[in-house]
């Protein structure tokens, strides 16, 4: 058993995939913190679906599976979806949830229309396009991991450079406006960071599950601290651990898909945090309520003795 584990850890493919999903989890933990704090957790869900038509159009234009072009297409269609959703929500009576649901399904529908058209068209180069829907982590190459790491490093640098701006905009957009912060620009940059994170994860985790990576780590981290910096660091750690652990479990077993396994590991960490965090946790709160009840009963009985 130990030998098997050692060979697994020494295995090149495992190292590449685990590192890739780990970095991906780390990034989505950091970027997702902004999304969950702004109560836009499900924006990631809508935008990941909205990236699909961009992939299809990218392929149609060059007729080859060139990752850069496909991801650029995904970026553009994701940003277009962001703009439509924000206009619908801000300028008229349409609620955010309706706008998200509508854009999510019509963009995804468009993606399917284009992908089906490509599949009906005989072209050997198209194989693997539908992997973007479910993701295929085992197909990750070390060049993919390098790209994720490079783009991710840039994004983390931006988070550090614009720490103050992002923070004030996340917690108090009105105040940010009075400071003459260009809120529209900050919002656009934040949405772009979310879209880029999603796109980095599309190939390995897939359209449907990447949104879970954006929400889970920050929700788990939020239970352990009230400070943005610490929450972000914990979220990055949780994301990284889920990525590596999910890849590990799926490589040990047979026929276990990586993306869903990562999500299940992540969910387990979220539920443990919700239950056992020392201050906000459900258990801690129950104990506190019991203690208060006891104190109250004590005080009451003391009062009775006195009278």
């Amino acid at each position: 058993m130990l030998n098997q584990l050692l060979t697994l850890f020494g295995d090149y493919t495992f190292q590449v995939v685990a590192l890739g999903t780990g970095i991906l989890g780390l990034l989505s933990g950091v970027i997702g913190t902004y999304a969950t704090l702004r109560k836009e957790s499900l924006l990631g869900d809508a935008l990941s679906h909205a990236a699909l038509p961009g992939i299809g159009i990218g392929f149609l234009l060059i007729q080859r599976k060139e990752l850069w072009v496909l991801l650029l297409g995904a970026l553009l269609s994701g940003l277009l979806a962001t703009v439509i959703i924000q206009v619908m929500n801000r300028k008229t009576v349409v609620k955010l949830d309706s706008a998200l649901s509508l854009i999510l399904s019509s963009f995804f529908g468009l993606g399917l229309v284009i992908l089906t058209a490509i599949q009906n068209n005989p072209n050997a180069q198209q194989a693997g396009l539908s992997n973007f829907i479910f993701g295929q982590a085992s197909a990750m190459l070390s060049s993919d991991v390098q790209m994720i790491a490079a783009v991710g490093g840039l994004m983390l640098l931006m988070v550090v450079l614009f720490w103050k701006e992002f923070k004030v905009f996340t917690f108090d957009p009105m105040f940010a406006k009075t400071l003459t912060l260009p809120s529209r620009l900050v919002e656009f940059v934040l949405s772009t960071l979310i879209v880029v994170t999603i796109i980095l994860g599309l190939e390995s985790v897939g359209v449907i599950l990447i949104s879970a990576l954006l929400v889970g780590p920050s929700i788990a981290a939020r239970q352990w601290s009230n400070k943005l910096g610490i929450v972000m660091v914990i979220a990055a750690f949780v994301g990284f651990v889920s990525g590596v652990a999910g890849t590990f479990i799926s490589s040990v077993g047979t026929h276990i898909p990586t993306g869903p396994t990562i999500v299940i590991v992540l969910s387990a960490i979220v539920f443990i945090s919700l239950l056992f965090s020392p201050k906000r946790g459900i258990l801690a709160r129950q104990i506190q309520i019991k203690k208060r009840e006891k104190d109250l009963m004590k005080q009451l009985s003391r009062g009775e003795e006195r009278s």
Partner: peptide, 14 residues
Amino acid sequence: LVSNDAAIGIIFPL
């Protein structure tokens, strides 16, 4: 402990 939309975002992917 979590906002309404985050609750949705945790349960359904799981």
